[in-house]
Amino acid sequence: MSDAQAAHVLLVDDNDEFRESTRWLLEDAGFVVSAFASGAALLEDLDRTPANGVPACIVSDVRMPRMSGIELQQELKRRGVELPLIFVTAHADVPLAVEAMRNGAVNFIEKPFDPTMLVHALRTATDHAAAISANPLVTEKLTPRERQVLELVVAGKLNKTIADVLGISIKTVELHRSNLMQKLGARNVAEVIRIALGHEQPHGANIR
């Protein structure tokens, strides 16, 4: 995979040693990595660097000075940044993990971790994001809000979590899910996921 095709990882961690070792690990696995010592540094970079269509994912520590990973997540949400987010942390904290996942994180990995776990999580997140954005059924048939709901469904989020992440009611989530299933010609959630990822052709006549 060339640099132009490789997924881009935005790595945020205040620990210099961990940040550099993880950068080497991910670059060796074929990712392009930009590393930041703080959430503020990442936000500054996002402000001045336009999106280029390359699949990307954020990997962030949770406990950092000045701006925690959760605070970074909240600021990214406020700015409308929809990149997949994976948290890593040395502090096992179930309520914190639940909050992070409820707010849209795609994974929560405890340090020290098996390097293959992080690599697999990143490949899954970036491959799913790339497949959904490249699927003409998704880009042409669904509204922006329906695409947001679809991405969260593919990530395995429940209706309540999707409602919390998007700031809408559960009833509205259910309506969007019903609409997107009809537009994609899917009969159940499993089919929605396979169709969205390009693994299956849609059913029915509502896809014209």
Rank of each mutant, 00 (worst) to 15 (best):
A4V: 12
A6P: 00
D14S: 07
N15E: 15
R19D: 05
S21C: 13
R23M: 15
A29F: 03
S34A: 14
E44C: 09
D45E: 11
L46D: 00
R48E: 12
N52S: 15
N52F: 01
V54L: 09
V54E: 00
A56D: 04
A56L: 00
V59T: 06
D61E: 15
D61V: 03
V62E: 04
M64L: 08
M64V: 05
S68Q: 08
S68D: 14
G69P: 03
E71G: 05
E71M: 13
Q73E: 09
K77E: 08
K77I: 12
V88P: 00
V88Y: 03
T89V: 05
A90S: 14
A90D: 14
A92F: 10
A97D: 04
R102I: 03
E110A: 06
E110P: 01
K111F: 12
K111C: 11
K111G: 12
D114H: 10
P115D: 11
V119W: 11
H120Q: 14
T126S: 05
A131P: 11
N135G: 07
V138S: 01
T139D: 07
T143N: 13
P144Y: 02
R145L: 09
E146D: 12
R147W: 01
A155H: 11
A155C: 14
N159V: 07
I162M: 03
G167C: 13
I168P: 02
S169N: 10
E174A: 12
E174Y: 00
H176M: 11
R177C: 02
M181K: 09
Q182P: 00
L184E: 02
V189I: 15
A190W: 01
E191Y: 09
V192C: 05
I193F: 13
I195L: 10
H199P: 04
E200G: 02
E200F: 00
G204M: 14
I207A: 09
I207P: 01
R208F: 07
